[in-house]
Amino acid sequence: MTPKSSQPGFVDTMLETFQGDNAGVVPATGHTAWLTVFASGAMAFLAVFALALSLATGRVADRWADELARTATVRIAAPVGQVDAQTEAALNVLRTTPGISEALALTDEEQNALLTPWFGSELDLESLPVPRLIEIVESDPGYDRDGLRLRLAGEVPGAILDDHSRWRAPLVAAANRLRSLGLLVLVLIAATTAVIVTLAAGSALAANQQVISVLRLVGAHDSYIARAFVRRFTLRALAGSAMGTLAGCVAILLMPDPGEVAQNNFLTGLGFVASQWLWPLIIPLLAGAVAFAATRTAAFRALKELT
């Protein structure tokens, strides 16, 4: 009887699959060959976009969080004659508040520039009850928001502190959710690849029952027979996904350059930046590993059922 040996690991088994001379025992022809290559290629192409979406939304979320987290605005909404006095009082409060490194009141020109996109360039600020804005830059470790609100309420009745958290949090949460969805899409693509490869391998095993019967007749172990199929499907998935990944990267490269401003948008900023271009290299390796595991499982299950 065959002595029981310790089980090799996934990587050892995978490397073992590509050793030996059993490559030719399974006929190379058949629709499953092209099906696997095409499906792996298509899935890899989609995976590149899912990865790009995930990385782009990650960048946007990080940028929004970083840029907005350290700034806040104090709005002075006072009667016309008191705006300057209350602005000065608010600046005094802010300059003496620990954790605030800078507090600057926006000039009329700066406020005009902010309102121009909505009201046009001919705006006369004097004719509108536009509140004065003071921009605050936070230092590390930051200031006590509740304490500052109380001080402003006591000393500058027309001042309202807006630390942007009200609208920043849902935007960052949405970007993070999109990043998670991108990763989920990658997992679904990997699972779909596994299903397609499993079906193709099952079909190939069924179509090659005669080959399996001959191999068993001459004393082949199930592992030898499975290896012949696994090697073929893993290489097909590797080749297909490499082509799909390349096509996906080229498509990303050819997307129009959105410019600096639009980089803040996850759709127009879709793509890879600097070392992120290395990430797509993982896709063919992942596809190969998925195909290896799927075919191996399918092959052993099928061989167990075949008498």
Binding site: M1, T2, G219, H221
Partner: peptide
């Protein structure tokens, strides 16, 4: 009856 598929493969050699 007590032989595994691997045992059978070995015997067939």
């Amino acid at each position: 009856r007590n032989m595994t598929r691997d045992d059978i493969a070995e015997a067939r050699r």
